[in-house]
Simulated scan of single mutants.
Amino acid sequence: MPGTYIMQCAYFDAGQCRSCSLIGTRYDEQLAKKQENCRTVLSLDSLDPHTASTSTAEPSTRLHWDEPFASLPAGFRNKAKLVVGGTREAPTVGILDRGAQGIDLRHCGLYEPGLAQVVKQVPDIITEIGLVPYAVARRSGELKHVLITHSPDGELMVRFVLRSPGQVGRIRRALPDLQARLPGARVISANIQPTHAAVLEGPEEIVLTDDLELPMQVNEVRLRLRTRSFFQTNTVVAAGLYRQASAWINDINPSSLWDLYCGVGGFALHALLRPDGSPRDVLGVEVSAEAVDSARAAASQLPGAPSFLAGDVSNHLGKAGTPDLVVVNPPRRGLGPELPRWLEDAGVEHVLYSSCNVDSLAVDLARMPSLVPVRGRLFDMFPQTAHQEVLVLLRRQ
């Protein structure tokens, strides 16, 4: 049973990788601990120290927690972010140790089955193409990372992160062999990251295939990912997150909705249609123009006409009226002071906040006291770690 599952990992036992800090803990215990932490951090007392435990708030204004949305405890990751080490003849794919030497983690148990098979082939692919792994200590070599995304349809996006464009030709010439070896490879690219720094990717992307996008089927929505588009690492749990958001939005049934930090449009497109099938007035705002292009492409396959704008969220506030409901899905640092202040003052009736950091979420909630959290749910995107993804519905009081 998933609840009693205890993951075992030879890499962890050998001290080679300690990323999964909760390995050895029963999965149901992991979930319970994360849920309890969410309850504690987002409790009424924590958000407003003046209320204390004698609060007279009506039960309807208190935060109700739904059951946590559980993941598969292992075999759930749709992405591999592989640091390349070793030599051209014997490359490693995984992480670097403290001495900047490669640790090979090609048999990591977190990858979903189709991705796991691809990761095992990556060292041979590196050797066959003739790419030299980048040696951090000597600042020599070319290949820094291999980044792979795997879709529910078994298709792939494969990105080779290089120090310079000098080796792009090798990958281009190897493209037919690569596509034969990896028949699901829809997008293959070279990313150029020239700086000697712990940075995953650089500003220049050279797409080598005709296709620019990887389709990701999530529930009834077919999202489109470009090379630097963000998408959740756990497809099954992401689908559950979007379904829950859609259900809560349909309970409210707003006429107009904004999705701020919309990325490739996951929340906006799942909220596009009312329960009767008619489209809502939906607007998505995202700083990444590439993500906005992807959202627009996905929207073109759906009924309705959502709008997606590229730009900083703060530049849009106050320029197009006030929607009935706002969805926010910020980075780990949270919303910052400006957006909560606007949400507090603008009269927005409902806010749906998707957070990957419960501590920054608590800070943001304290900045908009008129918007009270009434429903919450934990989504376990990253089993075996303490990471907590939380969806909270706020209602104006």
Rank of each mutant, 00 (worst) to 15 (best):
T227F: 01
L272R: 04
P203D: 14
N250T: 04
K319Q: 07
R39V: 12
R62A: 03
L42P: 03
I171H: 08
R377Y: 04
S164A: 15
V292R: 02
P275R: 10
D364Y: 10
L214H: 06
T56Q: 14
R296I: 04
S246T: 13
E389R: 02
P254F: 12
G277W: 05
H150Y: 15
R26S: 07
A271S: 08
P152F: 10
R26Y: 09
L105A: 02
M381T: 01
D293N: 06
Q397C: 05
S307L: 12
A185P: 04
P59G: 02
G321I: 15
E112V: 08
F382L: 07
T195A: 13
L241C: 02
S307H: 08
H150D: 04
Q167E: 11
T127V: 05
R228H: 09
L283P: 00
F308A: 01
T233A: 09
F76S: 00
V282G: 02
P337N: 07
Q217W: 11
Q232P: 01
A245G: 06
P113C: 11
A299S: 12
S360F: 07
Q217E: 10
E344H: 13
Q35T: 12
V392L: 08
V390Y: 05
A362I: 14
L309E: 07
T87V: 14
N329A: 05
A135S: 11
N357Y: 05
A57N: 09
G318T: 09
L378E: 08
R163M: 11
L212V: 13
P306F: 07
G102Y: 10
S278R: 07
W342Q: 03
N37Y: 12
V327D: 02
Y111P: 00
D276G: 07
A386P: 06
E29M: 11
A90L: 12
L394Y: 11
R186G: 02
A291D: 09
F12E: 10
A297T: 15
R172C: 04
P176K: 15
V136F: 13
P123D: 02
A238G: 03
E349W: 08
V122A: 03
T385W: 08
G304C: 06
L115H: 02
E89F: 13
Y5F: 09
L175R: 08
R39H: 07
P113S: 08
K33G: 06
F231N: 04
N357G: 03
E286G: 00
L22R: 13
M157G: 03
L147N: 06
G266N: 04
S60Q: 15
G85D: 01
